[in-house]
Structure formats: C-alpha cells, structure tokens
Design a protein around this nucleic acid. Structure first.
Length: 309
DNA sequence: AAGGGTAGCAACCGCCTGTCA
DNA sequence: ATGACAGGCGGTTGCTACCCT
C-alpha cells in the first residue's frame, strides 16, 4: 500500500502506517484533540511529519469515516456535484457523510470516470464526447442551417450548447447502439424530464425510433427548444441554457442547473433528470437524505457557469 | 502454477490560501 | 505591507491484490 517504507533525511518515517502508530495517534487525539499538526507527532511520540499525521487521521482514522462500497445514490451525488464543482473533491466529499476527499477522488478516478467514458460522456465536461463524429457534424450542421442562429457563430459548440440536447442525443446514440447490437428494432423511449426555468419543455416522453435518421431526431430536439433559442437570439447571443440571465433569480425559483443532468429542484430536493441513460431513473428519486446542495445554494460557487477547465 | 497486466487505494508531494505577528 | 507558518487541496506515486493467459 502507498509509498515505500523508509524514512526521510530528518529521520521521520514514511510509508504505510502500522497499527501501533495508528493507536498512538488515536490515543493522542482523543486526549488532546487535533490541530497543531506540526507539533503533534513530537508530542505524541510519533516519528512522522505533521502532514502525514493529519492525512492519516482525516483519511483513515477519524471515527466518522464510512468505509465500504459507494452506493448508487452516492455515485449519483458525486457525478452531479462534479458536473457543477469540477475536481473540488473536498467540497464533494462534504456532501457525502463519512466520505473523505481522497476517497471520493480515488473513486472518481478508478470507477466513475471509466463508467462515464464507457457511456460516451466526457468526464471532464460532462457532455457527450464529440469524437462521435457523426453526432458532431450533425450538431454543427443543425446549428449552421438553422435560422435560430443568426449570429453565424462558428465557435466550439461544447459548453455553449445546451448539454441536455447532447444528453438526449447521447441517449439516442447509445440506445441505438444497444439495439443494433441486440438486433432489436423496437422503439426506444427516452424518458426526458428536463424542466427549464424559462419555460422550455421537451416533449415528455420523447419517442425516438432507432431506425429513424439522426437528423430527424436532432431536428425534433432543436424544435423542442425553439422557444429558448429564439428568445436568446433576440439578445444577439448564442443560445445557452447554462448561461442564464440572472442566476439569483433562477436560483430563487428553486432550480439549480446540473450540467448535463437536468436540474436539482430545491423545494422537492430531487433532481429533475435529463439522464443520458434511460435506466438511471434513480436520478429522479428523492435524495433528501444526502441533501447535497443545501449550502451550495447559498454560495456564489453555485454559478451556472461550469467550473471545469 | 507462474508470470504479466491492471485496478484500487493509501500515502506522499508540492502548491495554494488564510492567519497572524 | 510583508513574511512566516499552519493547514488544506488536488494531483501523483507506488504497493498490493486480483485477474487473465
């Protein structure tokens, strides 16, 4: 586990902690509390640096640490929060009782990240990967050809484009793939429960037939959002559901934009989903017990602007 | 059974920020 | 205003366990 055993030039021990060291640290903190980590090891009689002690305590020895597998609900919370906060592991971990930032970070890197990639979702931007060339060119042409884009914008469509559309598209793509693999020509029903503050509503549910052309589907999607598009084009800006006009007002309505995953509804304390995976209906479940967004709603960091680099 | 590859994760590293004198 | 220090954070490393051939 961890770094190789040994000691640094100051004679301080490095590497895995022994049970004895753990016990010494626990005993000391129970007696004196933590803090002053630099002097703690000396006072406790540990040949460790303060930083190592702090890490050992916060990541492993703390009594409120919850060990074991992450639940599907925790998975969802991590993904949702990551889409808003980016790699702010401590902030994410703060919403998961008993989980540490290190644990969340490791879990993300070893598990969720791969899961998202397998689903065709970019784990950094939380948008469907546009190396799905067919989709990419489709979206571009849809934008260019549309009178809804009078500015002739030619930039990156990634975050400027309503990610929910991409989600839906990804759901379609993925469902299409699955059906083709299974040789199942049946209609796919992609549940779409996106609720927009500005009154934009997808048809609910959207019926998508995998045998229909992708452009038809995308046209349906674009049309379904035409209210928003035309409203914003009046302001001579590219339509962007994530760059809402007035964050304060929007939040006061009780909706927190969850990039690519719909909206978290403050009053219902539930996520109104635009999940790319029709099987992930748990997104719409009430997750009150985890209540991941309470404090976030009161901080400026809850801006609808994605924090991801 | 043995060896190579890979996933999981504890621990470390270096940078950043906040506090205080 | 500034420098020192403590603590926090995200990224990376490297060991162990497990899987596959």
């Amino acid at each position: 586990m961890g770094k190789s055993p040994g000691s640094d030039k100051n004679g301080l021990k490095k590497g895995p902690w022994t049970a004895e060291e753990d016990q010494i640290l626990i005993d000391y903190i129970q007696k004196h509390g933590h803090g002053r980590w630099r002097t703690l090891p000396k006072n406790a009689g540990l040949k460790r640096c303060g930083k190592s002690c702090r890490l050992r305590w916060t990541n492993y020895l703390r009594p409120d640490i919850k060990r074991g597998k992450f639940s599907p609900e925790e998975d969802e919370v991590i993904i949702q929060l990551h889409s808003v906060l980016g790699n702010k592991w401590s902030a994410i971990a703060a919403r998961l009782p008993g989980r540490t930032d290190n644990e969340v970070k490791n879990y993300w890197n070893t598990n969720i990240k791969k899961k998202l990639l397998r689903m065709g979702i970019d784990p950094v931007t939380h948008t469907p990967r546009l190396d799905l060339l067919e989709l990419s060119s489709l979206l571009s042409s849809s934008l260019y050809n549309s009178a809804l884009n009078p500015t002739g914008f030619t930039g990156n469509i990634g975050p400027m484009f309503n990610p929910n559309l991409l989600s839906l598209a990804a759901a379609f793509m993925s469902a299409q793939d699955k059906n083709m693999e299974n040789g199942n020509p049946e209609k796919i029903q992609v549940q779409n429960q996106v609720e927009y503050y500005q009154g934009n509503q997808f048809p609910n549910p959207v019926q998508i037939c995998p045998t229909s052309s992708s452009s038809t589907v995308m046209n349906q999607i674009l049309q379904a959002n035409s209210n928003h598009f035309s409203a914003n084009s009046a302001a001579n800006t590219l339509p962007n559901l994530w760059q809402l006009d007035d964050n304060v007002n929007n939040y006061s309505k009780g909706f927190l934009p969850m990039q690519n995953y719909g909206y978290y509804h403050e009053l219902n304390q539930s996520i109104i989903s635009s999940s790319a995976d029709q099987n992930q209906t748990c997104l719409t479940e009430n997750i009150t017990s985890l209540n991941p967004f309470g404090p976030i709603l009161s901080t400026p960091s809850s801006s609808s602007t994605p924090l991801n680099p």
